[in-house]
């Protein structure tokens, strides 16, 4: 039996909203609001959800690149929320992240060689020759070449930059990688190459991924289980086949119905979501989705549905199932 590598319990991240001439706190953005899930060793957990629902914030809070407001993050059976800077730095050899925005996350003044080689140096590879060799290997693995090593980030295309971020995350053979939109800037052929690579690495090294993405066919392909987030909360979580074949939560149903297909002849019924996207600083009462849910009932406005297991291994937060 696989054991849990990552356990998230009641994770919250609230950002202060400042306003007025004195910049006083006037409210809070509840970016992540009580999220819990577990990822097994060697598992790929996909996370999808509306833009701005808190996926990146969840990812960064797990690595404590931003400090969670509340909640527990257990990695390898150890709560890491209390660890000091030094211990965290050591741990980050095992926990890596591929950032959503490669442009903002790569130091513009460093060459690719330095960017990808840096984590190697931090974690003890002191020989420059060995580092150079490893950087070359990593670049080739993501479909770039040795000649790219001496270039600076701005000299690359968007997709090439994204691959530099991937190479950097892979450098130290981590145990866990939080992948935040890792293939969104890649053409489908390079995307397939990277997805195949991630799968191979998982098989070989028993790597574990949290895979955040908007492309639902990619998420379906790579994940074992998939979680759906809406306005800071997890609303559905189950095996990928169950989620795609039999989505329970009305938001998941709407999401799946909106996937554009590359077949110009295929026309499907789309669930169009009416109403404005609610604000995370003033979330609707009861079920946060009730303002747009086609199936909302009276109770939905008042009572927040609990995130419950309604079938074997199928968790949903919706009053339709209780």
């Amino acid at each position: 039996m696989a054991k849990p590598l990552l356990e998230i319990n009641g994770l919250k991240k609230y950002f202060d909203v400042k306003g007025g001439v004195f910049g006083r706190k006037v409210g809070e953005v509840k970016a992540v609001d009580d999220v819990s899930f577990t990822v097994m060793e060697g598992e790929i957990l996909g996370i999808v959800g509306e833009s701005g629902c808190g996926k990146s914030t969840t990812g960064k809070s797990i690595l404590r690149l931003i400090e969670p407001t509340e909640g527990e993050v257990k990695f390898d059976d150890r709560d890491i929320t209390g660890l000091d800077e030094d211990a965290m730095r050591k741990l980050r050899g095992d926990m890596q992240i591929i950032f959503q925005d490669p442009y903002a996350s790569l130091n513009p003044r460093h060459t690719v060689e330095k960017i990808v080689g840096e984590p190697l140096l931090v974690h003890g590879m002191t020989s420059a020759g060995k580092r150079k060799e490893r950087v070359k290997e990593l670049l080739e693995v993501v479909g770039l070449s040795e000649y790219h090593a001496s270039r600076y980030p701005h000299q690359f295309s968007g997709g090439q930059r994204q691959r530099i971020g991937i190479a950097r995350a892979l450098a130290n053979n981590p145990k866990l990688i939080i992948c935040d939109e890792p293939v969104s800037a890649l053409d489908v052929s390079v995307q397939s190459q990277i997805l195949n690579l991630m799968e191979e690495l998982r098989e070989e090294f028993n790597l574990t991924y949290v895979f955040i993405a908007h492309d639902l066919s990619v998420v379906k392909h790579i994940s074992h289980r998939v979680g759906v987030m809406y306005l800071g909360r997890m609303v559905e979580l189950t095996d990928k086949d169950k989620l795609y074949d039999d989505p329970k939560h009305p938001y998941t149903q709407a999401l799946l119905s909106a996937v554009p297909t590359p077949d110009p002849d295929e026309k499907r019924e789309r669930v169009i979501l009416e109403g404005d996207v609610p604000s995370p600083s003033n979330p609707p009462t009861g079920c946060a989705f009730h303002t747009r849910c086609p199936q909302a009932m009276d109770i939905c406005k008042e009572v927040r549905p609990r995130f419950e297991e309604i079938e074997d291994n199928h968790f949903v937060a919706c009053h339709l199932y209780t």
């Binding site: 489908v188 052929s189 397939s192 195949n196 799968e199 639902l216 297909t261």
Partner: peptide, 24 residues
């Protein structure tokens, strides 16, 4: 390129990708 598309309906483990990389 079109052959490399992941398909929501099929359950293949390995995705097709065009062999090789773009030369310098």
């Amino acid at each position: 390129l079109i052959r490399s598309l992941p398909n929501m309906k099929q359950k293949e483990q390995k995705l097709y990708s065009i062999p090789g990389t773009v030369p310098k």
